[in-house]
């Protein structure tokens, strides 16, 4: 039987002039998510920042397969992290963390 809710892992890269911490990144993505889709919408995404590498500026977030486009929009609308202007670029989407790391990280 196919699971109703399947996870997707979005690999992204940050372009910024200064370093960004994982905590600040998670906080600002949550803030944009809540601003754009509200608490109910955010609850549907099952969003979690799985990991973020400060050196490569690459990271992985988790969401459900039905909310991939929502999370892409959220990443696109995240303009600042801890007052540092950023561009967040989606590198790819995968069904498992392992595949996400192998293909895009």
């Amino acid at each position: 039987m196919v699971k109703e809710e399947r996870n997707r892992y979005i690999v992204f890269k940050i372009y910024s002039n200064s370093d960004v911490s994982k905590e600040d990144l998670a906080k600002d993505i949550w803030r944009t998510l809540l601003a754009m889709y509200g608490e109910y919408g955010a609850s549907k995404t099952n969003f979690w920042l799985i990991e973020y590498d400060k050196n490569t500026k690459k990271g992985i977030i988790r969401c459900t397969h039905t909310t991939v486009n929502m999370m892409r929009t959220v990443l696109a609308f995240t303009t600042k992290i801890a007052e540092t202007p950023v561009i967040i670029k989606t590198l790819g989407i995968s069904g498992t963390i392992k595949a996400a790391k192998e293909k895009f990280y």
Binding site: Y15, S16, N69, M70, R72, T73, L75, A76, T79, P85, V86, I87, I88, K89, T90
Partner: peptide
């Protein structure tokens, strides 16, 4: 108008979904 206002093509597409 500045580089941090640029977004990748896939990110621009996300506006299409909205």
């Amino acid at each position: 108008e500045n580089i941090f206002e640029m977004r990748g093509p896939q990110e621009l597409c996300s506006l299409g979904y909205l």
